[in-house]
Amino acid sequence: MVQERIVPDTPVEGELSNKEEALRYYEDMVLGRTFEDKCAEMYYRGKMFGFVHLYNGQEAVSSGTILTMRPGVDYVCSTYRDHVHALSSGVPAREVMAELFGKATGCSKGRGGSMHLFSSQHKLLGGFAFVAEGIPVALGAAFQIRYRRDVMGEDDDRVVACFFGDGACNNGQFYECLNMAALWKLPILFVVENNKWAIGMDHYRATSQPEIYRKAESFDIPGHEVDGMDLLAMRSATLKGIDRARSGQGPTLIEALTYRFRGHSLADPDELRSLDEKEAWLSRDPIKRFETYILDRDLATQGELDDINKKIEEEIEEAVRFAEESPEPDPSELRRYVFAED
């Protein structure tokens, strides 16, 4: 039996007792899961191409962070595993699906693809395909917030959530940006989705200090070790980070211990992870856990949850239909968007 690094139940501040709010989180997680399952199906049916990295298993991190912020107001910066961050940010499922189908109606107009989702309207800064390269971009957005406040005198209380994986924490940009964010007290949450594997590189073979949250100490900022399979724990850590960011105290590092239920990408044979390990994490499915939480506290009935599941199924079917029926980008616009004037 593998010894998994699992956070003991994180003390949760402020129980989630509001039904509407609980269902919003639940719906978002189900949306993420259902969307990704549909992507796998569409990929194998030849509807989408390239490298497609699915998020199954990590939903509590996206929903617990982004929905606790203000989607569409606060900034989100993602990686190549970005579909669900986009959905939590409010980018309509049909626009994400259409992008994956390479259609003109996609959120990046069919120019980006799976790893390059963008939406200025939803404050989604991307979709960054190289490991760690999004971190400085998120830092720039956070600097901009402070700049508007302190230079331009605007009343700006926005924050930035910057997502990246355990692999990125061995890259220089991670350290450079934590340093600058701490130095200038920028309103940013660095959210590490530690899913233990950088493609085939075991986290424990890649880093000298596997407890990533402890790296925060070197920058004199708080680092939280959080159960990334627990929506409430993610929500609680996010609330702390937001408070700190808004009050001008600067960044927070959140290490979410999580797991991807699928391979690195749909092209990954996934041969290195043991069955024991997978089972240990599958038993901690964040959606099932939150479902139990909701039912145990009578926040909603099973019937209400089933209705949400059904609604999401329909939304995803509609997204596929929309993507199928959407036009391809106009070949005469091949060169459009290279420059600002185009």
Partner: peptide, 30 residues
Amino acid sequence: YGELRLLDTPIAENSFTGMAVGAAMTGLRP
């Protein structure tokens, strides 16, 4: 113009250039 508008950065070219990208995307002119 003050220290935020003449921002002395640590020696981290990749990251401060990326930071300028993020600032430009969100409405500043670095």
